[in-house]
Write a protein that binds this DNA or RNA. Structure first.
Lengths: 284, 284
DNA sequence: ATACCTGGTCAATAATTTATGCTTCTTGCT
DNA sequence: AGCAAGAAGCATAAATTATTGACCAGGTAT
């Protein structure tokens, strides 16, 4: 992943000073060429060691390594910054055709990197386990309800019955009768809706397993989760950012779904049979 | 001029040691990333100062400057060496992690190519026109209902009211009272659901504008449409194919949405205001 | 409320890297 | 031979970078 994309993707969970560094670099990447770590620190009024720590935290070997990587990113115009991209000669007229998809791809990649490998498989396993031994509850509000609904629908194709609702009261009823072995999946972009947090906490008290899908910020909901899934998706334009977020969440779910499909032969057979039967019902 | 090209061009008038440095760099440019001037000198059995003097003679500010420039050159693949180019850029073994996304990207590209350029803009315009002068109807069944619902929700953020339902009877009622200037968007993966076809035909008789989103097969629904959007998405595994289809449809909608957002300043302002207000309502 | 972590920052300093001055050696020329 | 010019290395100064330990703020458990 490009250094700039990486910085951007982690920006949200940085401390104040770190974020200032990140912003400065993102906006003045070209300047970095002639900056030492000390100069950068001076420009921001912070200590040089903070700059070095920043680079190391991001996974670079040190400041020169970061600098080198950013040089590469700029050379490749892989800057993840629309304004910047406009300045350099684009091969064709800017039609913006594949533009949005490219942004989605970056978000997808960033997201893939911040979720520890194996997390998705763990979630898939948890869902499968709950499907056998307990209940699966799925919850999301507003736009977040859309995936919830779609995912519940998909699970039913696999013979996994999921209780889904966008009604907090109704969901609370389900949660209150939850037992160990049950699984609750909460979708919440910002992860700080009080009712959902309360719901999650209550569910944990019942000793159920909690999976959350939230943004990659520090938020109360994700800290509650047994398995928190994180999403990185950024754009200056709020409405685009929202699309990116949704595409990435959908992709996470798709990956889980595929894992479920392919993880278990019995379930796989069931799925194929179901799809065939549906086909027959709708076709003639 | 690229750093590597420069080195190559001056190689002939260099001293013996300098030429050894030049050759080493030209052949092992990638290694330079992790070499300090001292290490490079050791690798060649010469003194570190010779390396530094070499860089300065070439017009670089010093060793780090040369290194940075070479990083850029590599990133741009601007190495002026054909053999070199062959060695790099093996796309990497299939890891399985980004696999699904790659399939989606392929589907997205294929879809972009089969829809005549400008189609999406035309759809966006049609939606905007209908929003001003008539009604917008949105319809989908089963899984296709998911986008329909989501898209209607998004349109409302733009101040465009869309009537949405997954109930054919209810939709029929809306269609039967349709007038010229109205717009109907039908989502139907296979485009041959009899009820939807009938609905579409009826709507056309009322002289409304019809937009369809279907697979890129020949199907009765798309032939009815004023603006047919086509989707290409294939995989041997039926359940994956379905995911690809959904991701691509979602992407088409996202592009239309962005076009709507950015096509009209008034609407754009409204959107921003709406998002802000929503933020306020949910935050505190 | 108090004690105790934890994470974040900075100042001081150690370690590394880079740049430079100086010396020596070679080469070519007179 | 003697000299000038350039090339290379050595030693060292200068700079840059990395690490350590101290301090502080915010949160948590007692």
């Amino acid at each position: 992943m490009s250094a700039l994309v990486k910085i951007r993707s982690e920006r949200d969970q940085m401390s104040a000073v770190e974020r200032r560094i990140a912003d400065f670099i993102l906006e003045n990447a070209q300047l970095l060429r002639d900056y030492s770590s000390q100069q950068l620190a001076n420009a921001l009024g912070i200590s040089q060691s903070s700059v070095v720590k920043f680079t190391q935290k991001l996974g670079f070997k040190g400041y020169p390594d970061l600098k080198y990587s950013i040089g590469e990113a700029i050379a490749r115009s892989d800057n993840g910054d629309a304004a910047e991209q406009a300045t350099q000669a684009p091969p064709g007229p800017v039609d913006g055709a594949g533009q949005l998809w490219r942004r989605k791809s970056e978000a997808e990649e960033a997201t893939r990197l911040i979720n520890p490998p194996g997390t998705l498989a763990a979630v898939a396993d948890a869902i499968a386990a709950a499907g056998n031994a307990g209940k699966i509850l799925v919850m999301g509000l507003g736009e977040d309800d859309i995936y919830a609904r779609g995912f519940a629908l998909k699970l039913s194709l696999l013979g996994l019955v999921a209780v889904h609702s966008f009604d907090i009261a109704r969901m609370a009823a389900h949660v209150s009768s939850a037992a160990p072995g049950d699984l609750l999946l909460i979708f919440s972009e910002h992860g700080n809706h009080p009712a959902l947090v309360k719901l999650g906490r209550f569910f944990r008290e019942q000793r159920g397993r909690l999976v959350t899908i939230t943004r990659h910020t520090s938020n109360p909901l994700r800290t509650l989760a047994d398995l928190p899934l994180l999403v990185s998706a950024h754009d200056e334009r709020q409405y685009v950012q929202s699309l990116l977020y949704q595409a990435v969440v959908q992709h996470l779910l798709d990956q889980i779904f595929v894992a479920l499909c392919e993880g278990d032969d019995r379930r796989h057979a069931l799925l194929v049979a179901n799809l065939e039967r549906i086909q027959q019902m709708l076709e003639p």
